[in-house]
C-alpha cells in the first residue's frame, strides 16, 4: 500500500533547481534507502516532505485518505505521523533522556493538555520499552548532553519511535558512529521497518548494503535510478555520476 506519494515536485532557490520534477512512492511497511552525491537534493527532499520547504510545483500525497501535505505546517505534518531525524543529532541536551522521550511520546500536543498532563503507567512503560530498544535503559536519568555521539543518535531514533510515526525519515544515521554502533543501528532500523515505513538518506554505500533494501538514487534533484542496490550500482548513469565526481 502506498503511504507517501511524491509526484512532479520542483523547487528552486535563487534560480538554482534543488529539486527537479521528482517523483517517488513509499509503501507501508517499507525500508527505503535514498542515496546520491552531495547536492543531489536529499535534504531538500526531506525538507519538502516535512513541511520545512514549500515546493514551487508538484504534489505530496499522504495516507489512505490521500491528503496533501503541502500547506500543512511542520507540527501538523508531524502529528499526521511523519517523524524526522536530523543529520546532526538534535536532542534536548539540557534535559534527561527520560524527559526527551516523554516529550516525544504520542500524546495530545496542545499547550493545555500538556500543562495538565499526568504521567501514566503506560507512558512510563513505553519509555522503558523504547529505552531498551535503543539501549539507553541505564541512562534514563542522565542529561542528554552527557551522552556520547552514537547514544545521541539512538536517542533521537528513540524519540522518533516514541512519536509512533507511520513514516520515519532518517538522515545519515550512521554518521560518526563506530562500526559496532553502525551494526546496532542497522539492526534497529530493519526492525523498525517491519511495522512502519522508513526512509534512510545516506551516502555510505556499505551501510546501505547492510540495510538490504530498495534503493533510490537522486541526482541533480531528480530520481536517477531505483531498485536493489546491486541493480542500481550496475546502472550506467549511476556509475557515471559517482565516478564522474
Amino acid at each position: 500500500m502506498t503511504l507517501l506519494e511524491v509526484s512532479g515536485v520542483s523547487v528552486s532557490f535563487d534560480g538554482f533547481k534543488a529539486i527537479n520534477n521528482l517523483s517517488m512512492q513509499i509503501g507501508e511497511p517499507e525500508l527505503r534507502a535514498v542515496i546520491g552525491p552531495n547536492g543531489a537534493g536529499k535534504t531538500t527532499f526531506m525538507d519538502i516532505i516535512t513541511g520545512k520547504t514549500r515546493p514551487d510545483e508538484g504534489r505530496v500525497i499522504w495516507g489512505e485518505s490521500s491528503v496533501s501535505l503541502l500547506g500543512m505546517n511542520e507540527s501538523r505534518i508531524a502529528q499526521e505521523g511523519l517523524g524526522r531525524k536530523f543529520q546532526k543529532p538534535t536532542v534536548f541536551e539540557d534535559q534527561t533522556v527520560r524527559e526527551n522521550l516523554a516529550m516525544a511520546l504520542k500524546n495530545p500536543r496542545g499547550p493545555f493538555s500538556v500543562l495538565f498532563y499526568r504521567k501514566t503507567a503506560e507512558g512510563a512503560e513505553r519509555i522503558e520499552e523504547i529505552a531498551r530498544e535503543i539501549g539507553l535503559t541505564d541512562h534514563l536519568t542522565r542529561k542528554a548532553g552527557e551522552l556520547s555521539h552514537g547514544q545521541k543518535q539512538w536517542l533521537e531514533i528513540g524519540m522518533l519511535l516514541a512519536q509512533d510515526p507511520r513514516l520515519l525519515l532518517v538522515d545519515e544515521p550512521a554518521a560518526g558512529m563506530t562500526p559496532a554502533e553502525r551494526e546496532h543501528t542497522t539492526d534497529l532500523l530493519k526492525r523498525i521497518a517491519k511495522t512502519r515505513a522508513v526512509v534512510v538518506v545516506e551516502h555510505d554505500m556499505e551501510f546501505v548494503r547492510r540495510l538490504d533494501c530498495k534503493v533510490t538514487v537522486l541526482h541533480e534533484g531528480s530520481v536517477l535510478a531505483e531498485g536493489t542496490l546491486d541493480h542500481v550500482t550496475k546502472n550506467k548513469d549511476v556509475i557515471d555520476v559517482y565516478l564522474g565526481r
Binding site: E74, G83, E93, V114
Partner: peptide
C-alpha cells in the same frame, strides 16, 4: 512536561516542531 516542552522551544525550536508541537501556541 510543560517545562520540558518550553525549554525544548528555547533550545531547539525546529526540533520541537518536528515532534508535532505547535511551537507558536
Amino acid at each position: 512536561k510543560m517545562g520540558s516542552v518550553i525549554r525544548g522551544v528555547r533550545d531547539d525550536e525546529a526540533r520541537v516542531r518536528f515532534l508535532g508541537y505547535h511551537v507558536e501556541h
